[in-house]
């Protein structure tokens, strides 16, 4: 084990896989000479050369489309999106092509392409640069959607993404890039898709989350424990597609109360899907309706005070936990 930042864990995963398999390459805007807006790819051009570390034009459809074509021919391209907001420009390439070509070809091609990059709000980037996209992509069959909450998961899940045979949307939380944590050194350490984990044990309320909101939920859970004596069990989903809710069902069977936490907008979001599945599956176990903590249903404003109002915080999680315990005021 070594202590690594979320950012370095991602870089390590890519470099270890590039060392392991000559078919792995990376492409994106200003990832080579410039070394990446978030410096995830620092040092890679020097080490691997321009054929494997490709600076692309600012052309998201072009870079994703070409990566899909490379993947169909047996390469394993990683596409770095400067931010995931820009990937919408490539929606046709991701959703109409990458996600469907295996199916409509009757299974004749693999599409091992990883589209990764940062997302999320918090540093006053306003409406076009602060979005989160997990439910948008997880809606579509044919792709996998990953949203790690820790450096170890960032590394292990990215390695699984690169080694797989399917297109993966790998959503990094920009706010977590500097977060540190213990990461296994074993170059064959991977984390499988579709296996959620219990991030904190507790007996009173189940909190289900992923990515940065998982970290925020853990902070809220500690406060609730210290201040109120309420013990929350926190479930980290890790991947939204495939989605493993078994630990959530087991936990709700124990706690009988559930809060789902997401950063994105409430309507048609991941929390809605999760809450509906819990209600369908363990309805009889519930002592209260499943509560949702989400961002406000507005385009992200620039002003700091408004941005803070638009995003979920610990106090929202705490209030929701109290609500499902019928303990508010």
């Amino acid at each position: 084990m070594s202590e690594k930042s979320y950012r370095d864990a991602i870089r390590d995963a890519m470099m270890e896989e590039m060392d392991r398999d000559p078919n792995v390459l990376i492409m994106g805007e200003d990832i080579g000479v410039y070394e990446g807006t978030f410096r995830i790819t620092a040092g890679m051009l020097k080490k691997y050369g321009g054929k494997r570390v490709i600076d692309t034009p600012i052309a998201e459809a072009g870079m994703v489309g070409t990566a899909v074509g490379m993947a169909m021919l047996g390469l394993r391209p990683i596409v770095e999106m400067m931010t995931m907001n820009f990937a919408i420009v490539a929606a046709d390439q991701i959703l109409n092509h990458a996600a469907k070509v295996r199916y409509f070809s009757g299974g004749q091609v693999d599409v091992p392409v990883v589209i990764r990059g940062p997302q999320g709000a918090g540093v006053q980037l306003s409406a076009q640069h602060s979005q989160t996209f997990e439910s948008f992509y997880a809606h579509f069959p044919g792709i996998k959607v990953v949203a790690p909450a820790t450096p170890a998961d960032a590394k292990g899940l990215l390695k699984t993404s690169i080694r797989g045979r399917d297109p993966v949307i790998f959503l990094e939380s920009a706010a977590l890039y500097g977060m540190k944590g213990e990461v296994p050194d074993d170059p064959n350490f991977t984390v499988p898709f579709g296996v959620s984990r219990v991030a904190r044990e507790g007996s009173d309320v189940t909190i289900v989350s992923y990515s940065r909101m998982l970290q925020m939920s853990l902070i809220a859970a500690e406060k609730l424990s210290q201040d109120e004596g309420i013990e929350c069990e926190v479930i980290d989903l890790r991947t939204l597609r495939p989605l493993d809710l078994e630990p959530a069902y087991a936990s709700v069977t124990k706690t009988h109360r559930c809060v789902v936490v997401q950063e994105q907008w409430k309507p048609f979001g991941a929390a809605a899907e999760i809450a509906a599945s819990i209600t369908e599956t363990v309805f009889d176990e519930l002592d209260a309706p499943v509560a949702r903590v989400t961002g406000e249903d507005v385009p992200m404003p620039y002003a700091r005070n408004l941005e803070l109002l638009a995003t979920p915080h610990e106090q929202h999680v705490i209030a929701a936990v109290k609500k499902v315990m019928y303990a508010n005021g």
Binding site: R102, S105, D110, K144, R165, D166, P192, F193, E246
Partner: peptide, 11 residues
């Protein structure tokens, strides 16, 4: 043929 490797893949 939706994906090559189906999940969830709990052990």
């Amino acid at each position: 043929d939706i994906v090559a490797e189906h999940g969830p893949v709990r052990e």
